[in-house]
């Protein structure tokens, strides 16, 4: 294969997979933007959502659309409940407490998932073909196209939501300053719950797409580890940042894997995004689009 064709192939696949990372990172960003809480369980959310969908299909024979609806509904309920039981008591506590609570939650979901739904790997079939679309030098898998499409749709919907809708503007007010928002008559706790529920919706659809691509089992949660480079690059509270960060991470890991894997013997994909992230943390910790925090005593 010609050298530049190989590069273009790596770049396109990187962009597509990056958009799929962005889909998962969106859930993280939504929560951080609205509630300042850090969700280390994002990957587990995705895993749990896809387990619900698969379970609805296998155990109850639900058609795909219904199973996805059940998954979305289940994750919304889960998000509401979680906010009420775990996150609300932790408001105002140190960052470490929230991080540890979501880490604990991640461990719980990893245990509960296989305990309820069995620990074997299930496949989640979608009505699209597995055969790659070949277009010139490009091989594009349809599921990645779908994932990228869902991701872009979410970007558009959330962009509209935060810029135009009443609820979205209220949520931005909550994110900006909780006390002032409260004084303006915004029910802050309700918007916190709403943010977790929205993250649940994103995770459910992310779970369907990723579950189809990787197969549904506990290992699916490892996708969540890619969220951190993405959100650090893009800026923690920026939805556009999640998309751009996702694309950068996707491209970097694909190009690094394409050129470095033959030299070092594999595994560059998991490694390169974190090296990139460390560099960003050193020089621009608030990311490309994030807001810079100024600290006072």
């Amino acid at each position: 294969m010609v050298e530049w064709e190989f590069l273009i192939l790596l770049l396109t696949n990187g962009v597509l997979i990056g958009l799929m990372y962005a889909l998962i990172a969106l859930g993280f960003v939504l929560i951080y933007k609205a509630t300042d809480a850090i969700n280390f369980a994002q990957g587990e959310f995705v895993m749990f959502a896809s387990l619900i969908v698969v379970f609805a299909i296998l155990a109850f024979g639900a058609p795909l659309w219904l199973a996805i609806a059940v998954g979305v509904g289940g994750m919304i309920a889960f998000g509401f409940g979680l906010e009420r039981v775990v996150l609300r008591p932790l408001i105002g506590r140190p960052v470490v407490a929230v991080i540890m609570a979501t880490i604990g939650l991640a461990a719980m979901l990893r245990g509960i998932g296989p305990m309820l739904f069995g620990s074997g790997t299930q496949s989640l079939a979608l009505p699209i073909s597995d055969a790659p679309i070949i277009w010139g030098p490009l091989f594009i898998s349809p599921i990645q196209m779908l994932g990228a499409g869902v991701s872009i749709c979410f970007l558009a919907v959330f962009g509209w939501f935060f810029l135009k809708s009443r609820k979205g503007i209220a949520m931005r007010a909550v994110a900006d300053n909780q006390q002032v928002a409260m004084a303006m008559g915004i029910n802050v706790e309700r918007y916190f719950a709403l943010a977790w529920a929205m993250a649940g919706i994103v995770s459910a659809l992310g779970g369907v797409v990723w579950g189809n691509m990787l197969g549904v089992d506990v290992q699916l949660a490892l996708v969540g580890l890619k969220v951190f480079p993405v959100v650090i690059l893009g800026g923690l509270d920026s939805i556009v940042g999640a998309i751009v960060g996702g694309i950068i991470v996707g491209v970097v890991e694909n190009v690094a894997a394409g050129y470095l894997d033959p030299i070092v013997g594999g595994g560059t994909k998991d490694f390169a995004p974190y090296v990139l992230m460390i560099l960003v943390l050193m020089f621009r910790p608030y990311g490309i689009f994030g807001k810079q925090i100024i600290e006072r005593i």
Partner: peptide, 17 residues
Amino acid sequence: PHMRLVLFGALIIVFLV
């Protein structure tokens, strides 16, 4: 085998809260 993870996570949350 999964009980440990569940209890472990639950205990972290319970203690934090």
